[in-house]
Design a protein around this nucleic acid. Structure first.
Length: 872
DNA sequence: GTTGCATAATCGC
DNA sequence: GTCCGACCTATTCGG
DNA sequence: CCGAATAGGTCGGACGCGATTATGCAAC
């Protein structure tokens, strides 16, 4: 067993980096050797790396079975005897029981699995410049890996047998993936009856080459078009294909493998089907609780938002945990993070060297989820250290991809293109198929598609009204899909998903979109969304746009709410906007004032910032859900059921018209009244509050959306931040400055990270990297903004658009001009274009910015104090 | 042991 | 919050 | 009439400012 230093370990990784013409070779940071404990496992043996190279060179020439055997031969010298293990036997038995005649050659299976780990330098992985499979040497930590290898073996045996071909169900490497794409039509194939009508749309792809090639022994007379693709009941067996047994805990590795398969696919339909297959196995083999855990882990959540559980874990904590678990230096980890742009991948590439007294047992889905909740529960003194310890222990227990997804989850983003909509679809599909399997009534073809589509619709609409998996999933399992809406529906006290609005560029676009339908225009207030639930008289809760419980933030609103309820209102759910308000001057205050309100432990007396509620929709009244009613009706009922009080609780300003001039005037009126613009809603057509049908059903019109209007600034690029995730290798954000001719300084005003296309981003990287300077120029005024990763000489001017100006505690731009201390920054800054015609000295000046800020305030005559303490 | 400050994490837009 | 890009679906266009 | 091109919608993931809150740390 040879020991290698981290240095030699990383060399091959550097070689694997996607070619970046811009990056100079010396950019690759040299990793310092960590103080590896004597006796700790070697990270990765040198010969594995070498073999990897050989493999990648050879593999493109080899195909199919031949390649697998070759790979197996190449790997063979590292084979070790796998100790007997019951799980292993179980899987063997399962395979034998299921299809004895097709029991695959075990050597071939292993070869297959070896291929799982084969690096592929020819095809860049979607989100991981460093192929994780290179890093995961099979036998790395002999002291720890016993049971884990069993998981791997089990995963390996999740093989699908179609005729004579053996295909891993879960593609985990690009190689396998590519091969799968060659054969995936077998996945896509669904046996269906001969189309009844000739114009049946599903007959479209009948003549794909794959269909022709498919073996006649596999009876797929009919290939359904990709758009009708659903997991094939025949190809995936929820029980037999799963890598765990019924009534045994789901190994976290099974979920991690699913994530990996999802990550390496780009097609939404395939992603859906991969997750669906996993969920089908969970449905068939495991408990409802494990299904809930799986869903939460997939969505990377701890529970429903209104419970307010937070991980309280960020990059800092994660890095410390990595240091502790791996023995690498903080600097080495940060350097790698800078280069790789994903802390999950960094963790995966860092082997844990921490020694454990006992072998950590295999991670299960439930265990991982409950550990996350434990981490969230640590509070108070030295809680961070406890979190670090806990994460570190988890890290030690992780194997290969488990590390990646666990750490990504802890960092807040799983980044596998899998979010609520996709999960709901997969869950609906899985339950639908599960129900059909249980009842023995297997629909096919069109009928199947229809059933699946209704299932998705049902689940999505139920979930939008009751976004709580802990209620929906048990009901789903007990009552079935069809009956679900009866048991899970809008319930006061539980926030529902809010209707959102799509930005529009002007009236012409609005008319085009609503297409003759009658519309209502309302002011768009600049405050905070508040979903007010009156559960029973005197029992009120308020939720935010993201279903967070904001009840404690608005005791004043709750206190006076009874006065606004109509006599016959016993319970209701109101949709509204809370806006800060100057009670003396009787006018609205900017959003920035609203945010200064305390969030927790607010008592009525100490409230400094008063608010007014602008109600605009009613979703529930006295036991009846109104979400299926038209907006016209909802709005009318609302306006009849509440008693507005000026400055405390009013209805949103509304105008029902389709006249361009009227709308124009109304829009301008909204701006004069310190609103952001207009909300446009259809009154009758598509006018229900059904988020599942379309969550962006309303339209919004703001000044800054309009081309050629809104505040535009020309700013100098003075620095940039390394991009993360899909921006890895480019700059992800830029630091911008305005010019102050008086002091001849460039004063930093904001960052910007949106508005450019991928191509522009790359182009700017290539241009700007030539202007990097080691330290900022002395005439850059920086305030306390976060230091960029690179500084630039002041050469380029960009046009940037913003919605608003704000007084900034960290940016120095125009400091002293609008506020004695604070500078000015931009709200919602976005890149518009490069101003090649402008020199840095032509950039927008501090005085101009101060003027813009003042005119924004003076629209309403708001006078800002210069103390920075009070706003009014 | 308190207190004040800096930093990180969340969440509003 | 803004914005972009990939993917899907439905519709239109052109041979 | 059918396949190709196009348009529009959905979904996910980059990134913005600034507020509170919680925690860690150093000074008193």
């Amino acid at each position: 067993m040879s020991f290698v230093s981290i240095k030699s370990f990383f060399k091959p990784l550097a070689a694997l980096d996607p070619p970046q013409p811009s990056a100079s070779p010396d950019k690759v940071p040299v990793m310092e050797s960590p103080s590896l404990e004597l006796g700790a496992s070697p990270i990765l043996s040198g010969n594995v790396c070498k073999r990897s190279k050989e493999l990648s060179a050879d593999l493109p020439l080899l195909r199919g079975r031949k390649r697998k055997v070759r790979a197996r031969l190449l790997e063979s010298d590292s084979e070790e005897d796998i100790p007997d293990n019951t799980t292993d036997n179980v899987v063997d038995r399962k395979l034998a029981r299921v299809r004895p005649e097709h029991k695959p050659d075990s050597k071939l299976l292993e070869a297959k699995f070896d291929n799982f780990r084969s690096p592929d330098t020819n095809k860049s992985m979607v989100a991981s410049p460093i192929s994780a499979s290179v890093i995961s040497s099979p036998k790395i930590t002999p002291g720890l890996n016993g049971t884990f290898d069993k998981f791997e073996e089990n995963s390996l045996k999740r093989l699908k047998i179609s005729g004579t071909t053996v295909i891993p169900v879960t593609p985990t490497s690009p190689l396998i993936e590519r091969e799968l794409m060659d054969t995936c039509e077998q996945d896509i194939a669904i046996e269906s009856p001969v189309p009844k009508t000739k114009c049946n749309p599903i007959s479209k792809n009948t003549h794909t080459p794959e269909a022709k090639n498919s073996s006649p022994s596999i009876s797929h007379p009919h290939i359904v078009s990709k758009s009708n693709y659903y997991p094939d009941q025949r190809d995936y067996h929820p029980v037999d294909s799963a890598c765990w047994e019924t009534k045994t805990p789901i190994p976290y590795l099974a979920l991690a493998r699913t994530f990996q398969a999802v990550e390496s696919n780009s097609s939404r339909l395939r992603i859906q089907s991969i997750l669906c297959n996993y969920l089908r196995s969970v449905l068939a083999l495991s408990s409802p609780q494990e299904l809930i855990c799986s869903v939460y882990l997939t969505l990377n959540r701890l529970g429903p938002a209104w419970r307010g559980e937070e991980l309280g874990v960020g990059e800092g904590v994660l890095i410390r945990a990595l240091v502790q678990a791996t023995g690498r230096s903080q600097k080495a980890i940060k350097d790698e993070l800078y280069k790789v742009g994903d802390i999950g991948l960094v963790a995966e590439s860092s082997r844990c060297t921490q020694r454990m007294m006992f072998k950590p047992s295999a991670l299960t889905v439930e265990a991982v989820f409950s550990k996350l909740q434990e981490i969230a529960r640590f509070t108070g003194c030295s809680s961070q250290q406890k979190k670090v310890e806990k994460i570190s222990a988890l890290l030690v227990a992780c194997r290969d991809t488990e590390t990646r997804y666990l750490i990504r989850g802890l960092s807040g983003k799983l980044r596998i293109r899998l979010q609520e909509q996709t999960v709901l679809t997969s869950l609906a599909h899985a339950v639908c198929l599960h129900e059909m399997e249980r009842s023995g009534k297997c629909a096919k073809g069109e009928e199947l598609k229809e059933k699946m589509d209704t299932a998705v619709q049902t689940l999505k609409s139920v979930y939008c009204e009751l976004p709580d998996y802990e209620r929906v999933i048990p009901a789903l399992l007990e009552q079935g899909l069809e009956a679900l809406p009866k048991f899970c529906c809008l319930t006061p006290g539980i926030p529902l998903k809010p209707m959102l609005a799509q930005p529009t560029k002007g009236l012409s676009e609005i008319f085009k979109r609503v297409d003759q339908a009658a519309i209502s225009c309302e002011y768009k207030y600049d405050g905070e969304r508040a979903q007010i639930h009156v559960i029973a008289p005197g029992k009120v809760r308020i939720f935010s746009r993201n279903q967070e419980d904001m009840t404690d933030k608005f005791p004043d609103v709750i206190d006076r709410l009874p006065r606004h309820l109509g006599n016959n209102v016993a319970s209701c759910v109101l949709d509204s906007e809370v806006v800060a308000r100057d009670t003396e001057k009787n006018q609205k205050l900017p959003f920035q004032v609203l945010t200064t309100r305390k969030r927790k432990g607010v008592s009525l007396e100490e409230i400094k910032v008063q608010v007014c509620v602008y109600a605009f929709d009613l979703l529930y009244l006295n036991g009846e859900s109104l979400v299926h009613e038209s907006f016209r009706r909802r709005s009318k009922i609302m306006r009849n059921s509440f008693k507005p009080v000026d400055g405390e609780f009013v209805f949103s300003e509304q105008k029902i018209t389709s006249c361009t001039e009227d709308i124009q005037a109304f829009f301008e009126g909204s701006l004069k009244d310190q609103c952001e613009g207009l909300m446009i809603k259809t009154l009758d057509h598509n006018a229900t509050y059904e988020i599942s049908k379309r969550s962006f059903n309303w339209l919004k019109l703001k000044k800054d959306y309009l081309d050629g209007t809104g505040d535009t600034l020309d700013l100098v690029v003075v620095g940039a931040y390394q991009g993360t995730g899909k921006r890895t290798g480019n700059y992800g954000g830029f630091l911008l400055a305005c010019y102050d001719p008086d002091s001849e300084e460039y004063q930093v005003i904001c960052k910007t990270g949106t508005g450019f296309s991928d191509a522009q981003l790359e182009a700017q990287y290539n241009i700007l990297k030539q202007h990097v300077i080691p330290i900022p120029k002395p005439y850059y005024s920086l305030g306390t903004c976060p230091a960029p990763d690179v500084w630039f000489d002041s050469n380029y001017v960009w046009e940037v658009k913003a919605a608003d100006f704000s007084l900034s505690p960290i940016y120095p731009a125009a400091a002293g001009l609008a506020d004695r201390e604070r500078g000015i920054s931009l709200r919602f800054p976005r890149f518009i274009r490069v101003r090649e015609d402008k020199t840095p000295e032509d950039a927008t000046t501090s005085e101009q910015i101060a003027h813009m800020y003042r005119s924004q305030q003076s629209v309403s005559g708001i006078i800002t104090s210069t103390t920075g303490e009070d706003y009014y």
